[in-house]
Design a protein around this nucleic acid. Structure first.
Length: 154
DNA sequence: GCCAACGTTGGC
DNA sequence: GCCAACGTTGGC
């Protein structure tokens, strides 16, 4: 089993939004970066776990934990002309972009701030802690996962 | 809110 | 295939 960090801007879709859904499950769509796409398509598997990360907000950080409940499939938003994520390069025969389904396991009582992650021993090499870390889908090592989870418990 | 860094696109 | 222009994201 692998661990991941998925970024979402809370103004677009927050962990509160996910928690408000009756089944606590959503399709993770709209990834439009090839490096992130490749990870989603080739490495993210059912039952992998991920940190739901709030980006581009005053309270940047880890908001909770989710589980992959469906591995990569063609991203429907890329095929939907009405969607802001529509991409004419993507067709049903040749879907360029993929989505996965994620289920909320736990929302942290408080967001674990990025600044705290950066100060924490053992997380120096965590991708999200690196300067200018822009990937929206990031791998997390098992060790980083354990260390970061401890921070969430306070 | 501005600017720098980075990835992507388009023109040649 | 290169490179300039552009859009997006992150850092301050």
């Amino acid at each position: 089993m692998k661990y991941w960090l998925f970024k979402s801007e809370p103004s677009e879709f927050s962990i509160e939004d996910l928690a408000a859904l009756p089944d606590h499950t959503t399709a993770w769509t709209g990834v439009r970066n090839y490096q992130s796409r490749n990870l989603l398509r080739d490495q993210v598997r059912t039952d992998d776990e991920l940190f739901f990360y709030h980006s581009s907000t005053d309270l940047k950080g880890l908001a909770g934990v989710c589980r992959i409940v469906r591995a990569a499939y063609p991203d429907p938003s890329a095929l939907d002309k009405a969607s802001p994520y529509f991409d004419p390069k993507s067709t049903p025969e040749n879907p360029v972009w993929v989505a996965v389904d994620v289920e909320l396991i736990r929302q942290f009582e408080a967001v674990v701030p990025l600044a705290l992650l950066k100060q924490t021993k053992g997380l120096e090499k965590m991708m999200v802690c690196q300067q200018g870390s822009r990937l929206s889908i990031q791998p997390v090592t098992a060790r980083e996962w354990r260390v970061a989870l401890k921070l969430a418990r306070g």
